[in-house]
Simulated scan of single mutants.
Amino acid sequence: MEISFNDRRVDLIEEGIDLAVRMGDLDDSLSIAARRIYAQSSAICAAPAYLDAHGRPLSIEDLARHSLIGYGRDGTVHPWTVRHVDGRLEKFAPKARLVLGHGEPMLDAVLAGCGIVYLPTWLTADRIRRGELEMVLSDCLVENTVVHAIWPVTRNLAPKVRVVIDALIEHFAAPPWDAAWVPPDCRAR
Rank of each mutant, 00 (worst) to 15 (best):
N144F: 02
W177C: 01
C186A: 12
A180E: 13
A188D: 14
I44A: 10
D126T: 07
P159V: 07
A149K: 00
R97S: 15
V117C: 14
A125R: 01
G101H: 09
G103P: 07
A125K: 02
G113M: 08
V163M: 11
S29Y: 08
K95F: 04
S31R: 14
T145G: 02
D18R: 14
P120A: 09
R97A: 12
R189P: 04
L107N: 03
D74K: 11
T121E: 11
P57R: 01
E61D: 15
D74Y: 01
V136I: 15
L100D: 14
A39Q: 10
S138T: 11
A167V: 03
R155H: 03
R22P: 06
V82P: 05
L157S: 02
L19P: 08
S138C: 05
G16Y: 15
V142W: 00
V147M: 01
E14T: 11
D28M: 09
D18P: 12
T121V: 09
R187M: 10
Y118L: 07
E90D: 09
P176C: 07
L141W: 11
H102Q: 15
W151T: 00
R162S: 15
Y38M: 05
P176D: 14
Y50P: 02
H66C: 08
Y50A: 02
C114L: 13
L58R: 13
A180N: 07
P175R: 07
A47G: 01
A125H: 04
L89W: 10
Y38N: 04
R189S: 05
L100M: 15
W80Y: 05
I116R: 03
A109C: 10
A96M: 06
L89V: 07
A53D: 07
G55Q: 03
Y118T: 08
I44K: 06
S41P: 03
R22A: 10
M106W: 03
V182N: 01
H66R: 02
T124M: 09
N156Y: 14
H78R: 13
G101D: 15
I165K: 02
I3F: 13
L26M: 12
G113D: 08
H66T: 03
L157I: 00
L157Q: 00
V21R: 07
L12F: 05
R97H: 10
S67D: 15
D139V: 00
D62V: 00
G131N: 13
D74H: 12
L89C: 08
W181Q: 10
A173D: 08
N156C: 09
P48G: 07
G87C: 12
P57A: 04
L119C: 09
A96N: 03
E143W: 00
A43W: 01
D178R: 01
L12P: 04
R83P: 06
V161W: 08
L141C: 07
P105E: 06
N156R: 14
A47T: 05
P152K: 01
W177G: 00
G24V: 15
A167Q: 07
H54N: 14
A33N: 10
L63W: 04
L98I: 14
A39F: 03
A64W: 02
P57S: 04
V85Y: 03
D27K: 11
R187K: 11
R9D: 13
V82F: 06
D11Q: 15
E2K: 15
N156G: 10
S31T: 14
A109M: 07
N6C: 13
L89S: 06
K95H: 10
D62F: 02
R73C: 04
P120Q: 11
L26T: 13
G55V: 01
P57F: 01
D7K: 09
A188W: 13
